[in-house]
Each structure stands twice: as structure tokens, then as C-alpha cells.
């Protein structure tokens, strides 16, 4: 298992699409840092306050960015039959788990590195102050995930959110495995998570929310932000993440292991 995982990880992080996705994510994060206004760190970093073009682009296209590095790999290996050489050397279960982890980690890296970089760049130019509960700038009040930590230990809050976004990136990137090798074109595999999340966003916004009433944020595409319009409690974030992970593992396992290659 270790050796196939090492090989898959090497392939996942040494390909042009990984570099393109990471570069695009970093550019969006830097753009956000350039365009952001004045204010203390707790109110300007893009994960808390996604209010300008850089963060808007990042949080609109992140499902594509995380799928781009390696989400397409199973589709490609199945289409060009190169999986045969791997399957002659390792059993399908190990192949699936190695592929799953490589896709997960590559997606997680592309999601979390730009956010971390954005925090570090902004920390160079913006004062570190603790948000006050009565301050007008702090968007995170009771009901938001880790809101008490936001008001007591900002650095820990930000780094935990980087980790949460690493998990989001990984889980959504692995959604590419769900479609297996069925799509005709590679671009469809890469766009699958994006289209699914976009469809969920439209459906949930149309049917679940009443006019001007949003108690909780439930759209998975929005849950990658710490500062959402409605509260984003941890149980919603991790329930949805768990649901996606279950789909990834269940359907992905069927596509790669049970489905005859």
C-alpha cells in the first residue's frame, strides 16, 4: 500500500494540471490581498471576509481548482488502459485507496495553500487585533463554526479553517472518482464536482430558503468560507462533508474495485 500510495502521490503532485490549479489559486489569493481594504487581520482575510474579486473568483471556482490536479487520473488511466500496468502489480483495493488519497491530498493542497498564503500576506500589512463582539467588522457571531475561538485565538481559528478547507478540497476532488470513466471527455470529469455543487446551490437557494430568510448556510460551495452570510455551524459543515466523503468512497469504490475494468 505504501509504495503505490507514494507513486500515486508523486504523480498527483508532479503534473502540469497540479501546477496550473495551484498557480491559479495563489493568484486569486494574492489578488484578494491586493484588493482588500484597510482593517485588522480578523476582518480582511479572504476566508472570513470574501468581498472582492480575488476571493469571489477563488470561492466560485474552487471545485474546479481542486479537481484539476488529479481528479481526472482514474478516467485517463482507464481510457488509455495504462491502469493495466498498475493492476498487474497491485490489487484493486490498494489501487483505489492510493488513488483516493492522492486525489484527496492534491485537492486539499490546492484548496488550503492559497488560503494560508492569503492569511500570511495580509498578516504582513494588517494589524493583529482581537475582534470585539461589539465591533461592526466581525461577521462571526454565535452559531458560526468556531466563533468563540475567532474571538479568543484568531491564529488558531484561521489555521483550523485552513485544515477544514483542506478537507473540503480533498472531499470534493474525490467526487471525480464517482463518475469513473463514464464521461466521454476529460473536461467533464474535472467539471463534475463543480456542476454538482452549482446545481445544489441553485436548488437549495430556490427551494429551501424563503424570501429574505436564511437561518443556516447549507450550500456546500459556501461552506468552504468561515464568513458566510448565514451561520455555518460545525454540525452542518461536517455532516455535508461526511455525506460527500461517503459518496466518494461508496460510489468510487464501486467504480474502481467492483466495476469490471
Amino acid at each position: 500500500m505504501q509504495s503505490i500510495l507514494r507513486v500515486e502521490l508523486w504523480k498527483a503532485t508532479h503534473n502540469i494540471k497540479f501546477y496550473i490549479a495551484l498557480t491559479a489559486g495563489v493568484l486569486f489569493a494574492v489578488l484578494d490581498a491586493i484588493l482588500t481594504g484597510n482593517g485588522p487581520l480578523y476582518g480582511v482575510c479572504m476566508i472570513v471576509s470574501p468581498t472582492n474579486l480575488g476571493s469571489a473568483l477563488f470561492f466560485f471556482f474552487w471545485p474546479i481548482l481542486v479537481a484539476l490536479p488529479y481528479g481526472w487520473s482514474f478516467w485517463k488511466e482507464k481510457k488509455d488502459q495504462s491502469y493495466i500496468q498498475i493492476e498487474a502489480r497491485v490489487c484493486r483495493k490498494e489501487f483505489f485507496w492510493a488513488k483516493f488519497m492522492a486525489v484527496f491530498i492534491s485537492g486539499g493542497i490546492v484548496m488550503s495553500i492559497p488560503i494560508l498564503l492569503n492569511i500570511l500576506i495580509l498578516a504582513l500589512f494588517h494589524p493583529y487585533e482581537m475582534p470585539h463582539v461589539l465591533s461592526g467588522m466581525n461577521a462571526l457571531v454565535n452559531g458560526y463554526f468556531l466563533s468563540s475561538l475567532y474571538h479568543s485565538n484568531l491564529w488558531l481559528f484561521l489555521f483550523i479553517w485552513c485544515l477544514v478547507d483542506f478537507l473540503w478540497g480533498g472531499v470534493i476532488a474525490c467526487f471525480c472518482l464517482v463518475v469513473g470513466s463514464k464521461p466521454t471527455f476529460q473536461v467533464m470529469v474535472i467539471l463534475t464536482p463543480y456542476l454538482v455543487l452549482l446545481a445544489l446551490e441553485i436548488i437549495l437557494n430556490t427551494f429551501l430558503y424563503g424570501p429574505n430568510f436564511t437561518l443556516y448556510e447549507v450550500c456546500p460551495m459556501e461552506l468552504a468560507k468561515a464568513g458566510t452570510l448565514s451561520a455555518n455551524p460545525g454540525w452542518i459543515i461536517f455532516s455535508e462533508m461526511g455525506l460527500f466523503a461517503a459518496l466518494d468512497i461508496g460510489l468510487g469504490y464501486w467504480q474502481v474495485v467492483k466495476h469490471e475494468l
Binding site: 509504495s3 503505490i4 507513486v7 504523480k11 503534473n15 488502459q81 493495466i84 500496468q85 502489480r89 497491485v90
Partner: peptide, 26 residues
Amino acid sequence: GILIEAPAFIDAYTGLRNLELLADIK
């Protein structure tokens, strides 16, 4: 050892690197 249909490897690597990656598995 198997060669079925057209051989397929990773386009972006050299022949040697492709074989090294496969050999790394076992």
C-alpha cells in the same frame, strides 16, 4: 508481466521514469 492492446504510459515522463514509477510499486 502484461502487454495488452496498445501500451500506455504517462505522456509527460521519459521511458525510464515511467518504468521507475511502475517498478516502485512492487
